[in-house]
Design a protein around this nucleic acid. Structure first.
Lengths: 139, 139
DNA sequence: GTGATTGCAAATCTTTTGCACTAAA
DNA sequence: TTTAGTGCAAAAGATTTGCAATCAC
């Protein structure tokens, strides 16, 4: 028999974020929060859901990704024009981006040190510092 | 009388980059490389050209921006999904991005120190490090 | 002339929206 | 019930593309 071991945690996670645990949100959350650090686009997650026989519309995938991001469950990463990645790692960290393949990889926050950051413009406060290390095939 | 003082440099700049100095490229280059450090979108440059009574199609603006970028005359900056900025400052530097207003500002490269950057994944080499300091209105 | 470049409109791609329908509480 | 959430299809943006007309050399 199947033991729904991971169901409760995800459910609580949604509740805790103030999101009604609907069938679609639960299913997508289970795909996303499987313990790995994942970087997905809406299209990728939609395809993955389809493979897992979860019927969700692409519009709902977009809505859900943004709701999760708004609730602090995901983080949006912009590395190339016209496509958004969503990162399940919400801790303070940075990214390698392989420009050849379009692949994102985490760099733990403590592995990069940023010093001497100038004071932000008058009246503004830093909300986040994104470091993107773009890499390509070595010659 | 008008002295076309800045014409020659731009023309040579295009020639040097291996780009045929067409009427449109010259006109756009003159708008872009006016001495300031500029951050423009295709739409913005197109509007600016229109104001200056330069007739260029939006498609050509896109083509030109990408050709200039490929030739190393511009640098593309991605800070938000669905819109590309092109930066006339091609020296090593970073950016403040005001998320409220959508405004980019340069941070000179020597004002930020990045230390302890981990080794890039096997077989790849760093092509560029982008630091984007996202700011918003202070409370 | 000849091949590179341009303009226009149509096509593409990602993301958002409007609204009737469905489901969670 | 009552209201939040979903699906679909259409709309919206940004960017690219196909191809005939035009321009630089």
């Amino acid at each position: 028999m199947t033991t729904p071991r991971r169901y409760a945690p995800v459910l609580e996670r949604l509740r805790g974020a103030g999101l009604r645990p609907t069938r679609q949100r639960l299913a997508l959350a289970r795909l996303l929060f499987d313990g790995r650090d994942r970087h997905v686009t809406a299209e990728m997650l939609h395809a993955e859901a389809a493979e897992a026989s979860i019927r969700v519309s692409l519009a709902t995938v977009y809505n859900t990704l943004h709701q999760f991001t708004g609730a602090g469950l995901l983080r949006e990463v912009v590395v190339e024009p016209g496509r958004s990645y969503f990162d399940t790692n919400i801790s303070d960290h940075h990214h390698f981006y392989d420009e050849d393949v379009g692949l994102l990889q985490d760099i733990p926050g403590d592995e990069v040190t940023i010093a001497n950051l100038p004071r932000p413009p008058q009246g503004s406060a830093v909300s986040r510092v994104d470091v993107i290390v773009r890499v390509r095939k070595a010659l």
